[in-house]
Design a protein around this nucleic acid. Sequence first.
DNA 1: TATTGTTATACTCTATAACTATA
DNA 2: TATAGTTATAGAGTATAACAATA
Lengths: 164, 164
Amino acid sequence: MTATAARTSARKRAGNGAARSIDADEIGLDALVGHAGYAVRRFQIWIFQDFVKTLGNVDIRPTQYSVLTVIGANPGLSQMAVAKRLGIERARLVHLLDSLEQRKLVRRVKSKTDRRSHALHLTPQGETALAKFKRLAAEHERHVEEKIGKENRERLLRILADFT
Amino acid sequence: MTATAARTSARKRAGNGAARSIDADEIGLDALVGHAGYAVRRFQIWIFQDFVKTLGNVDIRPTQYSVLTVIGANPGLSQMAVAKRLGIERARLVHLLDSLEQRKLVRRVKSKTDRRSHALHLTPQGETALAKFKRLAAEHERHVEEKIGKENRERLLRILADFT
DNA sequence: TATTGTTATACTCTATAACTATA
DNA sequence: TATAGTTATAGAGTATAACAATA
């Protein structure tokens, strides 16, 4: 169907001034279908919401999880290094770390070699908590598999490998 | 490499207190690699930034583009219908439409059949402008193709078709 | 009673700029 | 001078709640 045809049939359906109600799935998206960005955006919203729900009991959001994971795998990193690696603004990381430090999951240790910077470490509680978060994140990942299929999930990861 | 091995080699690299600077690409992501959500998030950021840059001269962002596209393909829709179809909060759509109406791209027409609701239409200028936006959006889409490859882009759209 | 559009509030996220203490 | 961390601000985006007009 051409764009013009879609518009014409849409006019027929919509009439003049929403004469009858229209279900969301009846509405044509026209040029939006075929845009990678739109599909990726909708998928990302779904993933985000499932992640937040699956890790809701432990009150951890995707960004917090990524910060804890990177510190756990690379103890001693500076805030700048973490911010750069995850593509987070350093100004924003300050608040993220304030919250994680208050929750006793992370410690800022003053660096002796460069007194401007902090070396980031997980606390023992942070290590234990992160292990639990990882189990829940794996559960979330299984939800993704159920949603799009095991093979499709693997294809997706291969296609997007350069962006990590 | 196991998670423990990754942590150990990371410690060797990082030392105690960021003794030397570490490039972002040296930092292990550990459990983050293999998370669909993380890959999708990074990809979505790339797409968003390229879209905003490519349509920078006309000052149109992805959400505005999606609203114009849906109204163009379905003239007469109510605000509720557009909000539902695109997964936008109706409260937020109010501000989006305020801006698009001020720019003379969209008109809110009072519905005669349901005096609570507005029928949304593109203005003639809106139609012309949208045609231009679509050309620019197609250019952006070619950037995506160049970035991940033509076949991968098509695979991606097929995998995520249910989310549109 | 329920729905449409609107207003308002709060919190997250992104993008800057400016400040301090160091290097 | 440049960099690391911090503070502050402004604009998007998300999530709610409440209200007036209308169904």
